[in-house]
Design a protein around this nucleic acid. Structure first.
Lengths: 349, 349
DNA sequence: TTGTAAGCGTTATCAG
DNA sequence: CTGATAACGCTTACAA
């Protein structure tokens, strides 16, 4: 033993056991090992099968998803591009995608685009590099977006490469969609408040340019118009708590409080709700407040809102990708929304 | 043109341009093309370089991350295993990981484990199959977990394969950690309430068995003991709004209300807060309420809490993985927490 | 400075 | 039923 080198060999990390290792260990060809280890329908003798299984077990073999994806051209990866994963709106959607994906052995890559179109484009091409089988755009697009063309181009290329692209809101590029009728969402909550006897209804809008903002504002206006009410109490907003809070404070300083306030999303509505209450205004006694989307925030605040099935958005999108549906089919799926009356609204005395 | 076949050829999708295609197009070898297209330091003539670049541009070439990962053994993938991405606790952490990762060109794969150890194990091996460079366990582990050994084994194997494993809370397997001193977190908020003159302080605990729950409960007890107060008002809880709400309701039916209530996390505290207010108890006038973690929920409720730097947890963990630090170094990083007094607590009259 | 060729770990085709 | 072997798209010694 004195002939052994004094330096232990710089042994590399044990690496993962490869298919080659398993086949060697089992005394069969690599092809045979592959056949038993990936539920191939190709016939294999029971005895051989057993040997391979035993070898795989012993070596702790687990196939390389990377290598497999490379050759099969199926990565089992779904990409989702969100504005901000911390926003419960996107988190709910993501959860839907992940759950549905996981059932089918898919991994979900989440990309934050910070609500910026150019980042969405970057994320999309990154996902394409990883050969994602599908990419879900969770957020809405902007009207007259300068970067819109670039994105549309990227989407077109991705699709050419066989990547399924879906969106969960209005988008300026061609692709199947899963969404709600946002105009109807806003119409319904507005109509509900009107039915409660409110006349002067304020609306805190979403970010400038966002399609969803525009649609919801339209829905509000339509409902008001139909009741022959003025839809002139429209406040700036940006879907954030702070934006809603600021809007609420502006209302406090106005000559006259509105009868009711609608936020273009829950977060803005909750911000306004907080501002009003902090300003000494009783909700719902003096003024009603309602939001849209029905995130957990709304529930926690016991706030009236409209339920939008975000989780189902995600789950459905994932399913479409996994099933590999033909692109043109079912271009647009409109899911039902639902009014959720809670404690921040009441009939006007 | 009548000689054209009536059936258009079933042309396959255009596929992505490969390096081979680029090299062919540029009239150079694959190796040369590779060298210019991945910032290799290997010298290449400027003229050649230009040709390759032009070809790549023209063909819209983008390297296959899969193929590259396979050969370099660097996937540029970070995995994060969370209990539930909808929980803002995990969402914040995930955002930190993603932002830091994206800066370095990394993708983040998010896995929901539904807070169950066996799922964590499954997710871990899936991530290993994708050759994730690192895996972050965002949540805490359970004391006396039956599946604990299995997980520990999986972690050990993953590490053998060169995967960096980190955790952001107490865990029963060996790995570097980034966390706060949860005992101190609970101690500090309790101490603060005591300093405000509260004596009968209730504590809504976290889920049974979770290390974080235990540590926070200990911190509460220590602070109470040090002030020679009874720490006997401990309510069941599970880190959820509903759990906190139920605890709040139980307090309402008790003979005497406590002076203050501490939730083992923000969500539970907010649930209790809601229950108390719904029960007609004025907060903070009649009773103080505080939480821990400082998620956005706490801010929206203007609730006193303790800030835990979740985003930094994620960012730091990601950085460690990207930098590929040697495993044993910096076994545990304890980040500072910070008391955040807000509107749900006040000095006892 | 450029090219050849050997992998990385699979799957899949085609003979035996 | 089993086994070579050619891809998949890329990096990287090693040669020239």
């Amino acid at each position: 033993m004195s002939s052994e080198p004094s330096q232990p060999p710089p042994r590399r990390a044990p690496q993962r056991a490869s298919l080659a290792a398993v086949s060697r260990h089992a005394g069969v060809s690599i092809a045979t090992a592959s056949r038993v280890l990936n539920g191939s329908s190709h016939p294999v003798a029971d005895a051989t099968r057993a040997k391979v299984l035993a070898a795989a077990e012993e070596l702790g073999y687990s196939p390389s998803a990377l290598a497999r994806a490379l050759v099969t051209r199926r990565s089992r990866i779904i990409g989702v591009i969100v504005g901000d994963i911390v926003d419960p709106y996107f988190a709910e959607i993501t959860r839907g995608i992940e759950d549905e994906g996981a059932k089918a052995g898919y991994m979900t890559i989440v990309c934050n685009a910070d609500r910026r179109t150019e980042l969405e484009r970057d994320q999309l091409s990154l996902l394409a590099d990883y050969q994602a089988e599908g990419v879900v755009f969770a957020g809405s697009g902007y009207a007259g977006d300068e970067r819109g063309d670039e994105l549309a181009e990227g989407v077109a290329r991705a699709r050419e490469r066989g990547i399924k692209v879906l969106s969960l809101a209005m988008r300026d590029f061609e692709c199947p969609r899963v969404l709600v009728d946002n105009r109807a969402v806003a119409f319904d909550i507005t109509d509900y408040l009107i039915s409660l006897g409110h006349r002067r209804i304020a609306f805190i809008r979403g970010p400038e340019g966002l399609h969803t903002s525009a649609l919801r504002l339209e829905g509000f206006r339509e409902a008001m118009a139909r009741a022959e009410l003025h839809a002139d109490l429209v406040q700036e907003g940006d879907f954030t708590y702070d934006g809603g809070h600021a809007a609420g404070r502006r209302m406090l300083t106005a000559a006259e409080l509105p009868d009711a306030v609608i936020g273009a999303n829950d977060e803005a509505a909750i911000g306004a709700l907080a501002a009003l209450r902090q300003g000494g205004v009783a909700v719902p006694e003096a003024i009603s407040v309602a939001g849209m989307t029905d995130t957990r925030l709304a529930r926690f605040s016991d706030m009236t809102t409209v339920n939008v099935p975000l989780y189902r958005f995600g789950a459905l999108a994932a399913r479409r990708i996994i099933d590999g549906e033909s692109e043109p089919g079912a271009a647009e799926t409109v899911l039902p929304h639902r009014l959720v009356p809670r404690a921040t609204t009441r009939r006007r005395q």
